Simulated assay, not measured.
Amino acid sequence: MIDTELLSQIQAAGITDADYERAERHIEVLKTLSNLTYKGIFIYDNFKRKYLYISPNPFGWLEYNKEAFENMGSIFIDAFIKPNSKKAIIDAFVYCYQYIKNLSQEEKENIAIYCNYDYMSIDGKHLPSTKCTPLEFAPDGSPWLMLGITTSEPHGKHDMFCIHNILRKELVSYNPKNDKWEKKQVPTLSPKEKTVLLLLSQGQAAKSVAERLGMSEYTVATHRKNIFRKLGAHTVAEAMAFAVKYKAI
């Protein structure tokens, strides 16, 4: 069962009817946005501890009907998340909530949270990958509404959580090996490395990139090697995905 005492630590307070009028305006925008993507879009309410909105897009909910999630609130953790992930995800929610609450207002508005967790999908082969950010805040500065995007991944590691403080260019990641949160800076690419990565990601060969930038193929290869090292990537696609996700490009 869910630890209700832990959940109480991430419950917003002081929300009024006027606040929910603003929430309705957000929902109307998301209804339109959901027509443009296959991913699942949601707004989670940390005051009522329930979903205020769930888009009908099937890829976000791993083949379940979206109605299965509506009105469940935090109970979805008991219903759909595998036992080995339940404690990790609740602990992560509590940590993220406290981390955001203590930031300046400008930083709060520039936060992204990424998580993958072990989920009982119908086919048993996918993990949900969720990215969310605070949409509205309670009077005490804690996150009230969380805007999120969810899709399924055929591969990945469960219990992976990361907070991206965009203004500080800081990543705060959960390390399941030692059960600790660790901080590191987002890798920085030089202007030349960014250009090389963009051109390589477009499918251009090293020779073509070299000719376009007026450098040797050896120099292009050196830039490519340095990009992979900085971003922890093994392919151009991996490097580009990391750079876009964490705004390194």
Rank of each mutant, 00 (worst) to 15 (best):
N102K: 15
D159P: 05
Y117H: 06
L197Q: 07
L103W: 00
S201R: 11
E136I: 03
K184H: 04
I122M: 07
L147G: 02
N165Y: 01
E182G: 01
E109W: 09
G203C: 09
W181I: 03
A138F: 04
E106F: 08
L197D: 03
W181D: 01
K207D: 15
S121R: 01
T150C: 12
K183V: 13
I149F: 12
E153W: 04
L127Y: 08
S121A: 04
D179S: 15
M146P: 03
E109A: 14
P143K: 08
K207A: 15
S173F: 07
N175E: 11
T188V: 15
L213F: 03
I111R: 01
V209Y: 08
K169H: 13
L200W: 11
M120Y: 12
I163Y: 10
L167M: 13
P143S: 03
C162V: 05
I113S: 10
E170D: 14
N178A: 07
C132L: 10
I166D: 04
Q202I: 02
T150I: 12
F137D: 00
S173M: 07
L145A: 05
T130F: 06
D140L: 10
Q185R: 14
I100G: 05
H155V: 15
K207P: 10
V196D: 02
E211P: 02
K184R: 13
T151W: 04
N110P: 03
K184L: 00
Q185M: 15
Y117P: 02
L145N: 02
T151V: 01
D179G: 11
N116P: 00
Y119P: 11
I149T: 11
Q204V: 11
K108A: 07
Q202C: 11
C132I: 06
E182P: 02
M120F: 12
N116R: 13
K125G: 09
G156H: 02
N175H: 05
Y99K: 01
C162P: 03
V209P: 00
I122D: 00
S152I: 09
K169A: 09
Q105W: 06
D159F: 02
N178D: 14
S208P: 03
Y117K: 01
M160W: 00
G124D: 01
K101G: 06
D118W: 07
M146S: 05
K192S: 14
A112I: 13
Y99N: 00
E170L: 15
L199F: 11
E106Q: 09
L197T: 02
K192D: 14
D140F: 08
K183Y: 04
K183T: 14
K207E: 15
D123R: 14
M146D: 04
E182T: 06
K194Y: 10
N116I: 08
P154K: 13
S121Y: 02
K125S: 09
V186R: 05
L197K: 00
V172C: 13
E170Q: 14
E193Q: 08
G124V: 07
L171Q: 06
Y99S: 00
L145F: 09
